[in-house]
């Protein structure tokens, strides 16, 4: 597993949501999806953890762990961020509005 994974909404096959903590959602501007945004996952101290590029439908996805995370998006339309607090393995959805 090396190359940057496709950021479509479907999870990769064999994703075990009883073990993986998956953070997913869309980047939006005025309610419209933003493709090609740079979506950064920051840990509870604000430290950078990972970055992906949002899909054609604005989608992003991270494999994280329980805790407090900030999902921050940079785009031509502006920047924005939101906090996500997964409590255990599973799928957590959060929209990130940029302006």
């Amino acid at each position: 597993m090396c190359a940057a994974p496709d950021q479509g909404t479907a999870l990769p096959p064999n994703t075990d949501l009883t073990k993986e903590t998956v953070l997913t959602g869309r980047v939006v501007a005025d309610g419209q999806p933003v493709a090609g945004a740079f979506v950064r996952l920051l840990d509870s101290t604000g430290e950078f953890t990972a970055e992906v590029v949002s899909s054609a439908t604005g989608g992003y996805r991270f494999f994280a762990a329980p805790g407090t995370w900030t999902v921050r998006a940079l785009s031509r339309q502006g920047n924005g961020q939101t906090e996500v607090r997964p409590t255990g393995p599973g799928l957590y959805e959060a929209e990130v509005a940029v302006a």
Binding site: M1, A4, P12, E20, A50, E51, F62, F63, A65
Partner: peptide, 10 residues
């Protein structure tokens, strides 16, 4: 705690 960056499966 984890074995790969957070945008990759573990």
């Amino acid at each position: 705690k984890i074995l790969a960056p957070a945008h990759l499966p573990q």
